[in-house]
Design a protein around this nucleic acid. Structure first.
Length: 662
RNA sequence: GCCGGUGUGGCGCAGUGGUAGCGCAACUGAUUUGUAAUCAGUAGGUCGUGGGUUCAACCCCCACCGCCGGCUCCA
């Protein structure tokens, strides 16, 4: 009998009987592995366990507790979902159902254009558990296009995918079908077959640690021109433990939600009288924001920026010339019409204003790089369904700056800019970054190819030199220039796009910007747009969620609260508050009108970094009792002057009581 | 903009046809308290808005608005 020889991930060789499958290989390695195996990777391709192996292949067995393993079981769970829905809604059409981060979804079209409600989820889930209990096999089959069209004739979306692949198709379509020359399908039983590349788990009994999460509408093929399908999202994991850990993490994320914390900590609100996406900052949120802005200004000044101010409205002429009205009119508030039909727009961008400042005087190379900074409030008419807390608003303030420099200065300028960006973000307590480079879009782009290439390679070099992971986003740049964006991971591992650094070939051209070079020639400058916070509102939201509301001392609206044990200690408490205020610390006094425990509880709920309790011993010894946030163990008898120095130092170095221990 | 859900005092919630209740917060009084809730009392809501059905609507129907979850979009 002939044999097949395969190589394992550790480099070792195994010989198997001819016709052996990955499952046989797993069994040869160990019974435990055979039991765990879900699929296999053969020469880098993910395949079913029952696919026969060929000699010379490199094979690794995919088990549930791995990224690929979870992907396989999520995808298979999506098939079970589709089967359950077709059982409960005979005649339902199903479209696509991929694995996604943490789970899967499947898109359906219900008979009579029906839709799911949240109440349907438990029924569907119960049906899915039945299918899993039935222990159905996943069986792969391959068909010609003609057979495929026949097989799926009652499933119009599947037919559309097959036809698209037949006609050349996109990568996405090929992904569904499997190859560009045939149609791959998986059936669980005679009544359920789905178009699919696979692979899948061998049998439905391998699934089960899942939960359906929500229903949602989703456009077919992601285009709003297409009909809207009914999507069901679910999450699926390799074990009950992993599932509950994930659900637990979702709970945590809800507890950190800046909209909830913003209300609880009395930072800001969205009065419905103002309209969606328009926030007001209450005194506490205003304090946090002011501290953020003041610090930002201070850093920008030190980095050589100059401060400019521009109005919130402008005649249409400006945005006609900049081109914004051509491309983004939908995203702008409609114009105000004044006498003689003159149109004024609320500004959605600051850049054309800064461009006008550049143009206000003849410029010399000696003035470059010219860096103009503004906290510029802009207004964008975001579509009604997209506004979200402080992260997607209709009125926001960008920490916007535009740098005008020579082509020769571009590299150095970008290098120092990126360092500046990262340094500022770190000062706010974000430490885990990666960079994304968005390059020239294939279709439309202004500027010469050489300009793009130079700009992109400069950005890439600067990014690489920063020593951070660089993710390419090919074709993701705006049509007027490439950009680098800084992505930050927060305390629970979510990523947020923070700063963007964008080159612009368009505006200098449209506004005919020029400076007089050393050669006495008039030369077009390079323009760099950049925002570090992005918007102050959004950055606040990210910080609130990152810290779960436990803002570091320097950003906290209230830094110290002083409580006398009895009200005959209030006088000493007041003295402490005054001493703290004299050193610039935001402190307040809570009079002893209710028991200490209650007052401590209130202060804790407000997430104030330091609660000072003072009683008889403290009055006589000029000391304080320090209850630091995050500690269960109050410190007694701390010298008042020592404590004040400690808080002052903590504010100066942007620390937090949690970082010291107690 | 599209799909689905939802809307009750400042906040969190109960109330599925007979003109609204709880907790917290607020206010008043008492209490003087050493590290996460002192006690008592008072006040506060045309139940998102506008129509409709009904003898009667927080409750059923329609429209609009806001909010939530997605989709699309995000200069």
């Amino acid at each position: 009998m002939s044999e097949v020889a395969v190589t394992l991930p550790d480099g070792s060789q195994r010989n198997l009987d001819a016709g052996a499958t990955s499952l046989d290989l797993a069994a040869a390695i160990g019974s435990r592995l055979a039991k765990d195996a879900l699929a296999a990777t053969v020469n880098g391709e993910l395949v079913d366990l029952d696919r026969p192996l060929e000699s010379g292949a490199t094979v690794s067995i995919v088990t549930p507790a791995s990224d690929t393993g979870r992907e396989v079981l999520r995808h298979s769970t999506a098939h079970v979902l589709a089967q359950a829905v077709t059982r409960l809604w005979p005649g339902a059409h199903f479209a696509i159902g991929p694995a996604i981060a943490d789970g899967f979804y499947y898109d359906f079209e219900l008979p009579g254009n029906g839709s799911f409600s949240d109440d349907d989820l438990p029924r569907i889930e119960a049906e899915m558990r039945k299918i899993i209990a039935e222990d159905q096999p996943f069986t792969r089959s391959e068909h010609s296009f003609a057979e495929g069209l026949e097989l799926f004739k009652s499933q119009p979306y599947k037919v559309e995918i097959i036809k698209a692949v037949q006609a050349g198709g996109s990568d996405e379509d090929h992904h569904e079908v499997g190859t560009s020359t045939s149609v791959s399908a998986y059936s669980n039983n005679p009544n359920f077959v789905d178009l699919c590349r696979g692979p899948h788990v061998p049998r439905t009994s391998r699934l089960g640690h899942f939960k359906l999460m929500r229903v949602a509408g989703a456009y077919w093929r992601g285009s709003e021109k297409n009909p809207m399908l009914q999507r069901i999202y679910g999450t699926a994991w390799e074990s009950e433990k992993a599932l509950s850990a994930h659900l637990e993490q979702l709970e945590q994320a809800i507890a950190r939600d800046h909209r909830k914390l913003g209300r609880e900590l009395d930072l800001f609100s969205f009065p419905s009288e103002l309209g969606p996406g328009l926030a007001v900052f209450h005194p506490k949120g205003g304090t946090m924001r002011r501290v953020m802005e003041e610090y930002s200004r201070q850093r920008h000044e030190a980095a050589g920026y100059e401060f400019v101010y521009t109005p919130h409205i402008t005649k249409s002429e400006l945005f006609e010339r900049s081109g914004h009205l051509d491309w983004y009119a939908d995203g702008m508030y409609p114009p105000m019409e004044l006498d003689e039909g003159q149109k004024y727009y609320l500004k959605p961008m600051n850049c054309p204003f800064h461009v006008l400042i550049f143009k206000a005087n003849p410029r010399s190379f000696r003035e470059l790089p010219l860096r103009m900074f503004e906290f510029g409030s802009v207004y964008r008419y975001e579509k009604s369904g997209v506004v979200h807390g402080l992260t997607r608003v209709r009125g926001m303030t960008q920490d916007d700056a535009h740098i005008f420099c020579t082509r020769e200065q571009m590299g150095d300028e970008l290098t120092s800019l990126l360092n500046f960006v990262l340094s500022l973000l770190r000062d706010f307590g974000l430490n885990d970054f990666y960079l994304e480079l968005s390059t020239r879009p294939a279709e439309k782009a202004v500027g010469s190819l050489e300009e793009w290439e130079e700009a992109e390679s400069t950005l890439a070099r600067v990014a690489t030199e920063a020593g951070l992971q660089l993710v390419m986003d090919p074709g993701g740049g705006a049509f007027y220039g490439p950009k680098i964006s800084v992505q930050a991971r927060d305390a629970i591992g979510r990523t947020h796009q923070m700063s963007t650094i964008q080159l612009d070939f368009q505006l200098p051209q449209r506004f005919e910007l020029e400076y007089v070079a050393t050669s006495n020639d008039r030369t077009r400058p390079i323009m760099i747009h950049r925002a570090l916070f992005g918007s102050v509102e959004r950055f606040m939201a990210v910080l609130i969620e990152h810290y779960a509301g436990n803002l570091p001392t320097w950003l906290n609206p209230e830094q110290v609260r002083v409580l006398g044990v009895r009200n005959d200690h209030d006088e000493y408490a007041f003295e402490i508050v005054s001493a703290l205020k004299a050193r610039g610390i935001r402190a307040s006094l809570d009079f002893a009108n209710e028991p200490l425990g209650g007052r401590i509880r209130n202060a804790k709920q407000e997430k104030i970094p330091y609660i000072l309790v003072v009683g008889d011993e403290d009055v006589s010894g000029r000391t304080v009792g320090v209850n630091a946030r995050g500690s269960n163990d109050p410190e007694r008898g701390i010298n008042l002057a020592t404590f004040i120095e400690r808080v002052v130092a903590e504010v100066a170095n942007h620390g937090s009581p949690e970082l010291h221990g107690a």
